[in-house]
Nucleic acid binder design. Sequence first.
RNA 1: GGGUCGGUGCCCGAGUGGCCAAAGGGAGCGGACUGUAAAUCCGCCGGCAUCGCCUACGUAGGUUCAAAUCCUACCCGGCCCA
Length: 435
Amino acid sequence: MRHMSTDPNLLDDLIARGLMQDTTDLEALAQRLKEGPISVYCGFDPTAQSLHVGNLIGLLTLARFQRAGHRPLPLAGGATGMIGDPSGKSSERNLLDDDALAANLAGIVPILRQFVDFEADENPAKLLDNRAWTISVSILDFLRDVGKHVTVNQMVAKESVKNRMEGADGISFTEFSYMLLQANDFAWLFENEGVEMQIGGSDQWGNISLGVDLVRRRTGGKAHALTWPLLVRKDGTKYGKTAGGETLWLDAAMMSPYRFYQTWMQSEDDELRKLLLWLTFLSIDEVDAVVAEHAEAPHVRLGQKRLAKEITSLVHGVDAASGAIEASEAVFGGAPVEALSAMTFEILADELPTTNVDRSRLDVDDNLVSLLVEGGVAKSKSEAGRLLDQNGISFNDTKISSETVATRADLQHDRFLLIRKGKKSMFLLDFGGPS
RNA sequence: GGGUCGGUGCCCGAGUGGCCAAAGGGAGCGGACUGUAAAUCCGCCGGCAUCGCCUACGUAGGUUCAAAUCCUACCCGGCCCA
């Protein structure tokens, strides 16, 4: 009852946004939140050097809790991440070594910082690594302190396990045990960090609720949990990748802010409301206003622009978002390429796939196909030829044919050649300045 | 361990000596229409700057004028028996 500064509308807001899938006793949770700040944790497995859009809701929800006056604890699962999810058919993954794990953590932490505040005065976020309390636990201790409180019947009854047991591939003991590690995390945090709540995607519900049970059996305490629905497209597929199969990384080095921005720009009208509610901090009223305005004139793509700007700003910061917007306006805004400033091209060079090419390649007969391949426009000369036959390639704003030769006259600012493939794909060749 | 069926292009899946770079579907790409949308229609979709040649149908050999298709060995997967 120290701070009464918590936002009483948090739960209602989450529910209204559609971010509530499963919870433990909702009334008890509401009551607990009313009493003051709660410590809430959400796990992120450091299996790669960056998080991806699948982690976005978790990041945002932690942030929503912090904004509402609670204490967010992101957990980078050094222990669970080391073991990994062995569901793939190939050989079981070995423990990640310390170096790989450290590298992955180093990549993830800056992204976490983008969302939660570790320096706040009242309720700073705290980064957790479950390896700290898991690495030294002996197997006998584990069996006594965790296994003893859980029945196999209970574990087998979990949806995720049931599916795997009925399937042809079965489930390894390691993966079967995974939920115990996660439950142990929750119990440990409850006892040692005062963490009373865990949140996660609905696919985590089994693991999370097992942790809630473990807390009760081991300490008699009452822990809370909440999951959100998984973010899927209309056709039911996951949101983690672009249509082309590219993973939507949150690290700018792994996916440029421009590509990231463009992905959201291409969202469907039907999904705008949900995406705005789930992936931005706009209030529900603001979202509805944007959606209504969008519906007035869908072709203006106001909703997509707002969505892309908000998410890109959250993930990459306002400056990077501005660069992405400027680049997008430059290539999609309708202005002729000739009108773009040298500075705009500098931005484009950062945002678009850009290839350095020697000036001697200009004004040479038959340089076209090889330039297209070098620039990444086509994977092979055959494909380049096909694209040309299909009228799919432009230099700057002009469609070109297989007879075209790239010349100095095509360069913008005597340096850059903008190549379009189809309508949405842009590439830049950088010939350097005149020497 | 024995038997049996199978392993085909990004995925699914036809093809059982020449007409096979390999049907069909999906994904993807380009074009038209558009709103950088959806739906629809058209085209493409191994490589070689391409009317011909090369590389491909689990791997390695073999038979044949000719093999994804037949033979042998091996590897991998499903099912049945033990």
